[in-house]
Amino acid sequence: MTVLDLLGAAEEVHDRAPVVELRGVTRQFPGDPPVHALHPTDLTVRAGEYLSVVGPSGSGKSTLLHLLGLLDSPTDGEYLLDGRPTSGAGERERAALRATRIGFVFQAFHLLPHRTVLENVLLATVYSGVPRAERRERAVAALERVGLAHRLDFLPTVLSGGERQRTAVARAVVARPAVLLADEPTGNLDSASSESVLALFDELHAEGLTLLVITHDDEVSARAQRRVRIADGRLQEIA
């Protein structure tokens, strides 16, 4: 990939439809006094972008991730996912959106310990309505993509941290989501494993996946094409 290609890609991005669009989104937690976890925020992530949100703990990172992942609802403002407003969506619609439009990668991996690597990936296809006949094929393909084709029938408990996180990435992308949300994806990994996961993110981005990585680590955030800093519930673009 040359510099020219990158510039071309960057120009293209501005023409693409936004995948994630926050318009004045606010999140307050009731209390005395109320806690402003997220001040009114505007954020647009276009298809194919690789965005990192960096900030210290307690800065509102997790709140932002929960809002973007439809695990939480904003107190005010509008969140458009794939151009569709989500504020009127009910519990079932939000679940369906999570299943089909969003892929999650967590710091703690969240792999089921009694299921094999392949079964863990298959779990994501069950809820997202991947055609039954394609499920296994697509799960195997996703695991091949993250370099774990030789680990299909292993239990997650015998894998290294890097392999576990790559399994989680395979699970997140198997349903072909619009955006991959990663919450401190390298938080539990040593530097070699971190590097393997971040390299995988680079490859997925190059293939056109939209990524949003939340981290407190500047090194991790530096890998992204576009960086946003969050502090005290306010977002600020890093030039």
Binding site: A95, A99, H110, V126
Partner: peptide, 16 residues
């Protein structure tokens, strides 16, 4: 609880 949270994140409804 962790598994339940994961399933919800993967798109399971409360009913499921």
């Amino acid at each position: 609880v962790g598994e339940i949270g994961l399933r919800r994140a993967l798109g399971a409804t409360r009913r499921q």
